[in-house]
Design a protein around this nucleic acid. Structure first.
Length: 272
DNA sequence: TGATATGTTATCTT
DNA sequence: CAAGATAACATATC
């Protein structure tokens, strides 16, 4: 599932391919993509960036595409050459095609989404700012200091730490995979209430959040289930220590419980 | 066949 | 009010 490192990877790859390019035609094939987008052409892709697990495409007409992949949203890009040679394959592969963006140079960007939970919305600046304002701080930003993290936690003393880490309004970008990983690395039981965390534990957690996400981005994210980025797959799943595993790196058998309706693995030896 | 997996949000419950 | 639980959404895969 795309969490922060996966979305960051997708943004980097999209930038390489379509930044500054002109879109001459858009076909909207599914209601998860705002229909009016097809009436905006031509427009230029002025910028692309990530906020939490959301992608934002800044267009040169003052509007924005606000994209959330949720669990199974995918972008796929074909160069003009690939479009010419892969036409049949393209139709077959994209069974859940939701939109096609045709570029001036004959390149083609497609958006498809098997479970149709994701969306592509058309926003003006006000709508965009309103949506982005709801999200918590970016864990990799300078702004997210230890001091700030301590303050944030002190306002949520009764929350279960794992649930809180996954709450996008609290902190942006962590999902079920990286929340579990970071808690293992920091040696903290997922069910702990934030009010019971020592200063030392908060420090460890803060440090590992930044380190883990940066490392995962270096590996172009994790490929689990059917996540894939624009041109292939990341390999960070090979480095995950608790998610989808039976034993922790020290060989202890992991326990599996449910927190907030989501599977959660942890090690009762290493996490207290 | 049915359990499981997933991100987010609305709604119900404690 | 706070916050947890649950359902809902869709579909593939085991």
């Amino acid at each position: 599932m795309p969490e922060l490192p996966e979305v960051e990877t997708i943004v980097e790859q999209l930038k390489k391919r379509i930044l500054g390019k002109n879109v001459v035609k858009v076909e909207v094939l599914d209601s998860i993509v705002d229909k009016p987008i097809s009436k905006l052409t031509p427009f230029r892709i002025k910028n692309i960036y990530r906020r939490a697990k959301t992608l934002v495409f800044e267009l040169d007409n003052g509007r924005y595409l606000f994209v959330h992949l949720r669990m199974t949203g995918h972008f796929h890009y074909l160069t003009a050459q690939q479009v010419a040679s892969d036409k049949e394959k393209l139709v077959k592969v994209h069974r859940f095609l939701a939109a096609k963006f045709y570029f001036e140079d004959d390149g083609l960007l497609t958006y498809n989404d098997i479970r149709r939970f994701g969306f592509v919305k058309l926003f003006d600046k006000k709508q965009l700012e309103k949506e982005l304002a709801k999200l918590g701080p970016e864990p990799l930003s300078e702004e997210f200091t230890l001091k700030m993290f301590i303050e944030m936690l002190s306002k949520k003393k009764n929350s279960v730490i794992k649930t809180l880490l996954m709450d996008q309004h609290f902190l942006a970008g962590l999902g079920n995979i990286y929340a579990q990983e970071v808690l293992y690395l920091a040696g903290i039981m997922p069910l702990r209430r934030t009010g019971t965390l020592s200063l030392e534990e908060i420090k460890e957690l803060h440090r590992h959040i930044k380190e883990l996400l940066e490392l995962a981005i270096k590996h172009k994210g994790s490929t689990v289930d059917n996540y894939a980025h624009v041109d292939g797959s990341g390999n960070f799943q090979n480095y995950l220590v608790v998610y989808g595993r039976d034993k922790c790196p020290k060989g202890h058998v992991l326990k599996k419980i449910e927190i907030g309706g989501r599977g959660t693995s942890y090690c009762s030896e290493c996490q207290k």
